[in-house]
Design a protein around this nucleic acid. Sequence first.
RNA 1: CGGGGCGUAGCUCAGCCUGGUAGAGCACACGGUUCGGGACCGUGUGGUCGGAGGUUCAAAUCCUCUCGCCCCGACCA
Length: 570
Amino acid sequence: MRWSRYFLYTLRDNPSDAEVVSHQLLARAGMIDKVAAGIYTYLPLGWRSIDKLSRIIREEMNAAGSVEVVMPCIQPAELWQESGRFQKYGRELLRIKDRHDRDFCFGPTHEEVITDFVRRRVTSYRQLPANLYQIQTKFRDEIRPRFGLMRGREFLMKDAYSFHSSAGSLDEAYRAMENAYRRVFDRCELSYTAVEADTGNIGGSESHEFMVLADTGEDAVAACECGYGANVEKATAGAIAPPPPWPGKVPAKPEAVHTPGASSVPDVAAFLKLDPAHFIKTMIVETDREFAIALVRGDDEINEVKLKNVLDATHIQLAAESKVEQVTGGAMGFSGPVGLKGIRIVADPEVMRMTVAAAGANRADYHLVGVVPGREFAPDLVADVRKARAGDPCPRCGAPLVLKRGIEVGHIFKLGTKYSEPMACNFLDEKGETHPMMMGCYGLGVGRTVAAAVEQNHDAAGIIWPRPLAPFEVELIALNPDVPAVRDAAEKLYGDLQGAGCEVFYDDRDERPGVKFNDADLVGFPVRVVVGKKGVEQGQAELSLRRDKVKVPTALPDAVAKTRELLSGV
RNA sequence: CGGGGCGUAGCUCAGCCUGGUAGAGCACACGGUUCGGGACCGUGUGGUCGGAGGUUCAAAUCCUCUCGCCCCGACCA
């Protein structure tokens, strides 16, 4: 492709709204263009990267036994009402009315549509398993889209769904998908990790996320060298170190101590000359079904996702001040588990391991010292609801956990019968009995993966594409196209490289050398071939890798072979 | 939805506080000199200052409303 006939306009300045490097570089390299918040045009160069990734995904999905379909992006509301998600999904679901005032939505995901058509065609265990995928535009009306392709509202996703007559069959597909994802990300040359994950709104039993490690990642993962890895929303830990010894005598029964104005754990701890780990931190939450109390050790934080799950809630938030007073009878900031009635109490196991503790007294400016878990209060539920911290012992091997940031590029779920049951997606087994199908679903963010690749592969000058995702493989620069010898040599090389099967982008523009070099660095194709006046006089072109920029003078007749050699090495 | 900020030329921004003929750099067009790391000189094109209303002799500037965008928080396959 000749630059002069292509549609590529690079930007000298970063767009003012681009915060992260992948957004800045994709915009400056002329790959994407913002149309509205979280909505982008893929310009020709950007689409080539997307297309390359899509091909890799198709190859691996096909190889793993999935079959491609395309479902509509506009979906009738009835299907969503049937699964119960038309109400539950919230404002993230973009609702649309047609001219007849009928309800539709722009699909944020496709469980409903696929479950609907599978149930109308598959009725026997003999037809199972089935595994279908698509690469499709989704729309999620995010509260806050940001970071360019990393978190758009409209975005490209590969989503696959599998249907099974048994848990074993589902497990088999799940592993096959996991392996397919590993192959996709391996082929993209990304540094990633697969971690255990919460299932969120999609629901289901088992779930893994594929995280590309990057400082700008929006998710935190806890990882251990033994191979354990989990989203912090999900991460557990082995037993953590007990609090330091209780200073002084342990009271025989709890004493109410006046702690004026001190309500945060560190403040009260300092006031009472205790360690934060001696406290029971008490949070009152409001879910879609009840008020509840959550207890963690004073130096821990509540993990709201875990708490939401153990409370079997779909929505959770901290209770407002007035509600706290209503529920505990005391002031906000002085809540404690002792004496509370008519409300469920969830205690973290680490709380129950405390031999003695201090806690709020449910009375303004008072704390109870000498609270013994199990004696002064009995939790309705003991469950892990604490946030894992860096340095916590790994739940598998006990070594200290490390927290890293990651970009979620893939997420696979075992859905079980979450959708097949309400939507009556059933099959007959060999005995003629009816069962809902077991389902799995497997998402992979296409645009996000390209953005993640840029996050992981760039320098101050621009993108450094991994070859499999590079829009073109070779950038050929004619430095002085007005000099006949240079133009002729460059034209010949252009033809020869194309003839040799290289994807060449030929900068034939009438621009100064500096402009061409800087643009080449910015768009970041793996191999650069420069044809200039001095070189041509000596019968040479100059080859270099974008990655290390080491210049390799090469005789013109050898340039094609050398280019291919360099390409095979990246 | 809560808190903060920004909308002025295709892009990045100044001007606004303290009202008085709409600016710079880049980009673009033309001429000339340049040409292996974002050239220089000259000439030029380009803006209903996001929109509506108000105050005023006079509004990019002050006030009100509104739309859009960005950041932090809560939220999130």
